[in-house]
Simulated scan of single mutants.
Amino acid sequence: MASSMSGNGQLEVIVPDYNTSIRWVEHGYPCNLAKWHYHPEIEFHLIRRSTGFMMVGDGLIPFEPGQVTLIGSNVPHHWISDIGADEVLEKRDVACQIRPNKLASLVRLFPEAAPIHNVLERSRHGILLMGGSAARAAELLESSRDHSSYQRLIDVLSLLQVFALAPDDEWETIVTPSFTPDTGSDVSERINATLAYINANLGGDISLDDIANRVAMNPAAFSRFFHQATGINFSELVSRLRISHACKLLVTTNLPISRIRIDSGYRNASNFNRRFLEEIGMTPSAYRGSYGK
């Protein structure tokens, strides 16, 4: 990833329930909450189902069921699932959100809470959990659904403890150290329009000139804008999403690889095979075989 990216998203105004400071929410995909956006609250986030790519700041990484992340205050984020045109994923996401100043106050009052400060600092770059730490955090997020507001406070403290105590091989940051969110422009409308355009045309023609025209920019300016906002080139994102879609079809269907190639937007077989090998590390047929298909 580039070392000097900046990006932003659409501000989401989060209103917790009356007399609480913690918001627990679950939602599906697509839905109006699933978009490139940011908010002042930190967010513990669990993906229950589907695969795809997570965009956080200038980071882009694959996700699968059970992924747990902590997104820092005002860091733009979005999870793009690979789904069919009419497919809807019920309750794909679980999120628990709280203003970081509430936790900072706790640290000032109780020196025992000092590890929370380190977690909040790390969260500015997005934290991805793995292994046993991810499993423990996922269990806490799920169980919090039916808890009282008081118990949810304990859940948040327990989640912070999981992130604070995670071994070095069970966590990593997602966003480059130099990333600075820019929340002062309308870039989110263009980013969300671009992502919708890619998803709608994943198996067909996707044109840089076309999307640039749709968001009222010239192609060169759009290309620079998209890379600055997301940390990835437009063509690279399209390619990754197409290969991700091909992987899903290889594992979940018995369609011939030639058909999957076309359905994933590749008209040229050698180009598809080369790109698949670069992205996945094996050929499409070997990938399908690794799943016993």
Score class of each variant (00 low, 15 high):
Arg124Ile: 08
Ile47Arg: 07
Gln151Ser: 15
Ser6Arg: 05
Leu109Ala: 10
Pro65Ile: 04
Ser133Phe: 04
Asn273Ala: 02
Ser144Arg: 09
Arg48Leu: 10
Ser239Met: 05
Ser158Phe: 13
His245Met: 04
Ala220Gln: 12
His227Met: 05
Ala95Glu: 08
Ala220Lys: 05
Gly184Arg: 15
Ile257Ser: 00
Trp36Leu: 14
Thr69Val: 08
Asp168His: 06
Arg48Cys: 01
Gly132Tyr: 11
His78Ala: 09
Asn268Gly: 02
Asp86Ala: 03
Gly203Arg: 08
Pro256Ser: 01
Leu157Lys: 07
Tyr18Trp: 08
Leu109Ser: 12
Leu208Lys: 15
Thr183Ala: 11
Leu103His: 11
Phe222Asp: 01
Tyr18Pro: 08
Glu139His: 01
Val75His: 02
Leu11His: 01
Glu142Phe: 09
His147Arg: 15
Glu278Val: 13
Leu153Gln: 07
Leu33Ile: 04
Cys31Gly: 10
Lys91Asp: 12
Ser6Met: 03
Thr194Ser: 04
Tyr150Gln: 13
Leu70Thr: 05
Ser105Thr: 04
Met1Asp: 00
Ala34Gln: 10
Leu140Tyr: 13
Gly28Thr: 11
Leu46Trp: 14
Leu250Gln: 00
Gly72Glu: 14
Glu172Ile: 07
Leu250Trp: 00
Arg23His: 11
Ala113Lys: 11
Ala114Phe: 14
Ile154Tyr: 10
Gly184His: 10
Ser143Asn: 05
Ile116Ser: 03
Leu153Lys: 04
Cys96Met: 15
Ile243Ser: 00
Ala164Cys: 15
Leu165Gln: 12
His37Arg: 11
Pro167Asp: 06
Phe44Glu: 14
Leu33Pro: 15
Glu236Arg: 06
Glu236Leu: 07
Val56Gly: 02
Ser258Phe: 02
Leu277Asp: 13
Arg261Phe: 04
Ala85Thr: 10
Asp209Thr: 01
Leu255Lys: 03
Leu120Glu: 01
Gly59Glu: 11
Arg275Met: 15
Ala95Lys: 11
Ala113Glu: 07
Ser105Glu: 05
Pro181Gly: 10
Cys247Glu: 05
Arg23Phe: 02
Asp210Gln: 14
Thr183Tyr: 08
Ser3Trp: 01
Leu165Val: 03
Leu208Tyr: 13
Ser123Trp: 13
Asp168Glu: 10
Leu141Val: 12
Arg122Gly: 02
Phe272Asp: 08
Lys91Trp: 05
Val107Thr: 05
Val251Arg: 09
Ser188Asn: 10
Tyr291Thr: 07
Met1Cys: 00
Leu106Lys: 07
Ser50Glu: 12
Asn268Ala: 10
Arg122Met: 13
Phe234Met: 10
Ser148Val: 15
Gln228Asp: 01
Pro65Tyr: 06
Val75Phe: 04
Arg48Trp: 02
Val215Phe: 14
Val13Gln: 02
Gln97Ile: 05
Ala137Asn: 05
Asn213Gln: 09
His77Ala: 06
Glu87Gln: 09
His147Val: 12
Leu129Tyr: 15
